[in-house]
Amino acid sequence: MITPRVPTGIAGLDEMLAGGFLPGTANLVEGAPGTGKSTLAMQFIEHGITAHGEPGIILTFEEFPEHLIRDAANFGWDFAAHQAAGRLRVIQTSPEVTLADVRRTSGRLETLIEQIGARRVVVDSLSHFERLAADPVELRLLGFELINALKRMGLTAVLTRENPALLGETSEGDDDLAYVVDSYLLLRYVEIESAVHKALLVLKQRGSGHATDIRQYAITARGLEVRSRFAGTHGIMSGTPVMTHTEAFAAAFLTPGKK
């Protein structure tokens, strides 16, 4: 039996996810500033609307909708037209208002989902929940509550979260939410030979297989493009990988022009 999927429209990523996210799941995309979390999320919404006729909602806690719509236009995604056609709603709000709204019956979000028939939602970004609670346990419960509310409403969600570490390992205790979400995608900067590359890893996908290798990706004029896996290096997720013994040997002795 083939499990239905909710494709992101990002070719290499859907392949890593065995076809896409599972319907009605909460999917965390974490990365440092500029790694393309919001672009990935917008692409997920754009693809839903244009390729699958699935209206979407974007809850933005930071970037103003007018800027987000402008950014989307730079990738050729006409969010203004989607909004005018009732296929998309970009809502500027805050974690406290969102939580208060989803806790009540027939709240603003629930009503909107009914009105436009929304199937996909983006929450950008979950990092803003951190100002609601200093205690990590309470914070995790708040995240759990939001995720369950979105699932109750039948939505497939992409939730972004900032990771302040540009390169290197993340600090412990940052990943409480990782237990709660259904899939967890990590976007990282990687330094290789004095150049910064971008790496994507699917850390988990509950209820489904997924690729476990680390892939290169780029933010192009059409959005994210996931490319081949990193070859010849290890320690990619540390941010500063080193060559494998074979590659190091080849670079030192076999590459033309090197002595």
Binding site: F64, T93, D101
Partner: peptide, 16 residues
Amino acid sequence: HANPHTADTAENLARY
């Protein structure tokens, strides 16, 4: 007008 679907508190609107 620029962000017509905004729903937020005075504190956050002041910030925006």
